[in-house]
Computed example of a mutant assay.
Amino acid sequence: MEIRDTGCQPGAMTNTPRPIGQTDRSGVLHPKNLARYSATIHEADASVAALVDHFWTVAWNLPSAERIEQQIITDPAVTLTVEAGHVPAELVVTGVHRRAWTREIAGWGTVFAIRLRPAGLAVVSDLTPEAVADRTLPVVPELDARLYALMRAVAGAPGVESRIARATTLIGEMAAERPLTPRQLLANDVVAAIVRGDPLPASPSARTVQRALRETIGRGPAWVRRWVRLQEVARQFATNGAGCAAEIAARLGYADQSHLVNDFRSAVFTTPGEYLRTLRLPTEPPRT
């Protein structure tokens, strides 16, 4: 697909950012760090809401000797990022991860991200969910010319608002080329329902739901439900501390506290107790 400059000007769209806070279910372990990254979220325009969940940005400037090994239980979604500074690559696609993954934060850097909904990948890219599963890949023409053209055009826009406007316009054009299928829309609805904690939407069969999610994010509904629950476990530990671990287990539907501990350890490679101890360590104040 050839991406044309559509003439989007900075300020053509109005989008009020919201800081991502410690109490948000962001999946960021050690969420106190979010203040140091100036993390913000921007809602997607209704015209691309079936493809884009939201946009987010981070920016940091750490002392030269400091390194933060940031662990993340990421959303069950594919994310596209335009990056600058001390970063692995300028254009990056991150697939659905089955374990918490670690990103090193050092020096200075900025990230503009497009968090896709399940239906989004097949529209903006020729990659399959399996091709990016458990991976963070530089986006180059040889990987996927369609996705590269989109992200290069977005990277060329000056400023966050301009990037949001350009991404919205171009993704809308790409959707016109590849109209969404009923299964892709079903996948959107299923993941949204799980995230909200609602019953799954009506479907012809459980097999249809399974196929819809496998085709769009590479994982089934049981895994998505487990992963969203683990994000909530991490959020509640960070905000409420250790005293209510048994209550958290009961409230979130675990058979008992030991099941919560085992599930957390398998995803994060540490026990809740060890994680809580690291939360109590002092955090450096923001510096520039």
Results as ranks from 00 to 15, higher is better:
residue 74 T to I: 01
residue 135 R to S: 07
residue 196 R to N: 01
residue 198 D to R: 14
residue 135 R to W: 10
residue 203 S to D: 11
residue 51 L to S: 07
residue 134 D to W: 11
residue 216 T to R: 02
residue 66 E to N: 10
residue 104 E to L: 10
residue 221 P to M: 12
residue 16 T to W: 03
residue 261 V to D: 14
residue 148 Y to W: 15
residue 283 T to R: 14
residue 275 Y to G: 00
residue 227 W to I: 02
residue 53 D to W: 06
residue 135 R to H: 11
residue 44 A to P: 05
residue 206 A to K: 14
residue 118 P to M: 08
residue 242 A to Q: 11
residue 35 A to P: 03
residue 211 R to E: 05
residue 113 A to R: 05
residue 212 A to K: 14
residue 214 R to N: 13
residue 107 G to P: 02
residue 132 V to G: 03
residue 77 A to T: 09
residue 90 E to F: 07
residue 274 E to N: 14
residue 263 D to M: 06
residue 200 L to D: 06
residue 24 D to T: 05
residue 74 T to F: 02
residue 222 A to R: 15
residue 90 E to Y: 06
residue 250 A to H: 13
residue 29 L to Q: 04
residue 180 L to Y: 06
residue 210 Q to F: 08
residue 239 T to C: 09
residue 2 E to D: 12
residue 133 A to G: 07
residue 197 G to F: 05
residue 288 T to G: 14
residue 86 H to G: 01
residue 100 A to L: 08
residue 9 Q to E: 10
residue 23 T to K: 08
residue 16 T to M: 03
residue 3 I to E: 08
residue 137 L to Y: 04
residue 143 L to S: 05
residue 228 V to R: 09
residue 79 T to D: 00
residue 154 V to K: 01
residue 232 E to Y: 04
residue 271 T to K: 13
residue 96 V to Q: 07
residue 175 A to H: 11
residue 7 G to D: 10
residue 234 A to H: 03
residue 267 A to F: 14
residue 52 V to H: 03
residue 264 F to I: 11
residue 65 A to K: 12
residue 12 A to Y: 09
residue 64 S to F: 12
residue 67 R to A: 03
residue 78 V to W: 00
residue 215 E to K: 15
residue 89 A to Q: 08
residue 32 K to E: 04
residue 272 P to H: 10
residue 153 A to S: 14
residue 37 Y to M: 15
residue 45 D to S: 13
residue 282 P to G: 05
residue 6 T to R: 15
residue 62 L to G: 01
residue 219 R to A: 02
residue 74 T to E: 11
residue 231 Q to M: 12
residue 225 R to P: 00
residue 260 L to D: 03
residue 61 N to V: 07
residue 200 L to H: 10
residue 106 A to S: 13
residue 198 D to S: 07
residue 83 E to K: 15
residue 272 P to S: 04
residue 74 T to P: 00
residue 10 P to G: 12
residue 271 T to A: 08
residue 148 Y to G: 01
residue 153 A to G: 10
residue 92 V to C: 08
residue 167 A to W: 09
residue 41 I to C: 12
residue 191 V to H: 00
residue 178 R to C: 01
residue 283 T to G: 09
residue 257 Q to K: 15
residue 247 E to V: 10
residue 119 A to F: 01
residue 276 L to M: 15
residue 217 I to P: 01
residue 246 A to R: 15
residue 240 N to L: 14
residue 201 P to A: 08
residue 26 S to I: 04
residue 17 P to L: 03
residue 234 A to M: 03
residue 236 Q to H: 10
